[in-house]
C-alpha cells in the first residue's frame, strides 16, 4: 500500500492518496480528514445513485449521510482482496436502497460463505483496484445501447421487463444486451482473459 511510514496527519495530502489507503486510515486511525476526503469523492455519487433509484431528494440526503456513516463505522470490515472501495460502497448503497424502498422485502439477504466452503485461490491474488480501473475504461467503451440497459438495471433498480417497456424493446433484447455488456466487462475485469 502507498503509506509505508506513519505520517503526521497534518502533512498528508489526502487528495492524492488512493481509495484503499484512505479507507485504511479511517479503519486504523479513525482519521477524520481521511473520512472528509472519502466523503468528497463519494457522497455526491451515492446521492445521485439514490435519486436515480427513485428516492426523493430529502430522503436521498438522509440516506447518503447514513451510508457515509456506515462507511466510517464499518471501515475495518472492508476487505481489499474481495472488492475495490467503489464496489464496496456500491454494495452498501444497494443494501440501504433495498432497506429504504422495502416493497416486497422484509429481510436483507446477504451472501455469507458456508463455513465448509473454501475460497478458491485464484480469487485471492486479484488486485481489485487495478481491475476496477480496467472496468471503468471498458465501461466508457460500451456501445450506448448496452450502457443504457446497465444503467436501468443497476441505477434505476428496474427489472428487465420494466426496462424493456420503457425503451420499447422486446424483453429478450434487453436481456441479451445486459448479458453482452456484463460479459464484456467481466473480460476486462479479469485482465483481458476470456
Amino acid at each position: 500500500m502507498g503509506l509505508a511510514a506513519p505520517l503526521e496527519p497534518a502533512y498528508v495530502d489526502w487528495a492524492s492518496v488512493p481509495d484503499g489507503d484512505v479507507v485504511r486510515a479511517i479503519a486504523e486511525d479513525r482519521d477524520r480528514e481521511a473520512f472528509a476526503e472519502l466523503f468528497s469523492r463519494y457522497a455526491s455519487r451515492v446521492r445521485t445513485f439514490l435519486v436515480a433509484g427513485g428516492l426523493a431528494p430529502t430522503l436521498a440526503d438522509d440516506l447518503t449521510q447514513e451510508i457515509l456513516l456506515e462507511i466510517w463505522r464499518r471501515a475495518e470490515r472492508y476487505d481489499p482482496t474481495r472488492a475495490s472501495v467503489t464496489t464496496w460502497i456500491f454494495t452498501i448503497c444497494r443494501s440501504r436502497r433495498i432497506d429504504a424502498l422495502r416493497r416486497e422485502r422484509v429481510h436483507l439477504v446477504e451472501v455469507e460463505v458456508d463455513p465448509g466452503d473454501p475460497v478458491p485461490s485464484h480469487e485471492l491474488g486479484l488486485d481489485r483496484e487495478r481491475s476496477a480501473t480496467a472496468l471503468r475504461v471498458a465501461l466508457a467503451d460500451l456501445p450506448p445501447e448496452q450502457a443504457a440497459v446497465l444503467d436501468g438495471a443497476y441505477f434505476a433498480g428496474k427489472s428487465m421487463s420494466q426496462i424493456a417497456e420503457e425503451q420499447r424493446l422486446p424483453v429478450g433484447t434487453v436481456k441479451s444486451r445486459v448479458r453482452l455488456a456484463v460479459e464484456r466487462l467481466r473480460v476486462a475485469l479479469s485482465g483481458g482473459a476470456p
Binding site: A36, F39, S40, R41, Y42, A43, S44, R45, V46, R47, T48, F49, D61, T64, Q65, R82, A83, S84, T86, T87, W88, I89, F90, T91, C93, R94, E123, R128, S131, A132, L135, R136, A138, L139, A140, L150, D151, Y154, F155, A181, V182, L185, R186, L189, S190
Partner: peptide
C-alpha cells in the same frame, strides 16, 4: 463479485458534484 464490480464501476463513473452542508 464481477457483477457487483460492474455496479461499482457505474457508481465510479458518476461525476462528483458539490453537496452544500452535508459533510
Amino acid at each position: 463479485a464481477a457483477e457487483e464490480a460492474v455496479g461499482g464501476a457505474l457508481l465510479g463513473a458518476i461525476a462528483p458534484a458539490p453537496l452544500n452542508d452535508l459533510l
